[in-house]
Design a protein around this nucleic acid. Structure first.
Lengths: 215, 215
DNA sequence: TTTTATCGACAGACAGTCGGTCTATTAAGG
DNA sequence: CCTTAATAGACCGACTGTCTGTCGATAAAA
């Protein structure tokens, strides 16, 4: 029954990940985690100093997964700027095959704290990545703004809040109506002609459930 | 010691308001509230069905205070559009003399859930109010956008996230640098000439602590 | 032998419940 | 008009079950 610390740690994180996703952070007791992993209380507190510590470790994992994939794509200068933006954004949905589940976890109303912490990761981590691409685009004459970072920050903040979040309760039609408006606004922010970023529609999936995440 | 239900309810809410502000929602026990009000457990659960129910009632209060003031100003067509926008926004800081304290409460990291719930009130409640003013401005030829609502939504989402929140940790200089960039972006969104909205700087207070809230 | 991982009993705190009490008001009876 | 009984709303506090985090003991590995 004895294992390497790192292995145990990951077992615990895996269990917590699933349980938090099902029942939320507050709704999950440490006993639930103990049972699922098959260890005793003391063991859990040997590996983690508190329940919140487990959540923080989980967020670190997400952080690495989500931003790692985005960073990889952003650095690949062989891809054209427009295409790269789309791919970076879309990578957030599917990085490691579970980005989407992560996002779904977070949206349980019970998980306000975890949600907040992940939002923080994204709002701080994503704009720098996107800004670099935008700067390239500016050099190539594709975009025109004196404030690329703040533009990206605004866009990410918006999509996080309105599209990724349950902050605004949108029907499918309302959501669909927001998309061209959003693209129009992005065009203005980036100083390009109206209609020239319409190709970005594809970031929002084909409808249904895919479009939950796009920041 | 016997009181009208509504009076007791408000006593409890007042106490909870202060305690949540000091120690956060999770950090405040129902016993703390009991002590502060000077009532017994049963009494509290006679008036509220759960601890979270107390928070929800508190948020209703905030909601009324915050949006009520904003609505009042927005409806006053005797004030010029530009000025009215500034006043609506600034009213959020000081409505009822305690808007600022409300905002400060919410920013305690312990209060993630309350924070989220108030953000929801703002992101859903404020854009409609502002949109009406913008529409007036469009009729007067002051602004030009086919999507006034989505513009406001974007602006509110951004200020909520970046300026009002601790999502992005800004030094004073970083904060100061964000302001002209923000105004520039708003100008683009509203389709006005660069520099013409600079008067909005005043919404961000004189620096220091005043500028915590501006959405 | 020392370090690393594990165990499970336990303490302390807390949210919510429940049966019962107290009191003001109203209704009935004298 | 006064007294007494009934009713309902406000209140009480002991109690229950649950949960988190601690600690000393123990076993396995190094």
């Amino acid at each position: 029954m004895r294992k390497e610390a790192i292995e145990r740690r990951n077992e615990i994180l895996d269990a917590a990940d699933e349980l938090f996703g099902q029942k939320g952070f507050d709704g999950t007791s440490t006993n639930d985690i103990l049972e699922k992993v098959g260890i005793a209380r003391g063991t859990l507190y040997y590996h983690f100093k508190s329940k919140e510590d487990i959540m923080d470790a989980l967020i670190d994992r997400y952080n690495t997964q989500i931003l790692g994939a985005a960073n990889g794509i952003a650095a690949d200068k062989s891809i054209a700027v427009h295409e790269r933006i789309v791919r970076v954004v879309m990578a957030l949905n599917i990085s490691g095959g579970n980005g989407k589940e992560i996002i779904d976890h977070i949206h349980k109303p019970q998980n306000a704290l975890m949600h907040q912490k992940i939002q923080k990761v994204i709002i701080n981590g994503l704009p720098p990545i996107l800004t670099e691409i935008i700067r390239e685009g500016i050099e190539q004459g594709l975009f025109s703004t004196p404030y690329p970072y703040e533009c990206m920050e605004m866009i990410v903040a918006y999509t996080n809040t309105v599209f990724d979040d349950d902050m605004v309760d949108l029907t499918d039609e309302e959501r669909a109506a927001r998309i061209p408006a959003f693209i129009f606004n992005v065009e203005r922010l980036l100083g390009v002609e109206s209609g020239s970023l319409m190709y970005m529609m594809k970031m929002f999936g084909s409808g249904g459930e895919e479009n939950r995440n796009n920041s």
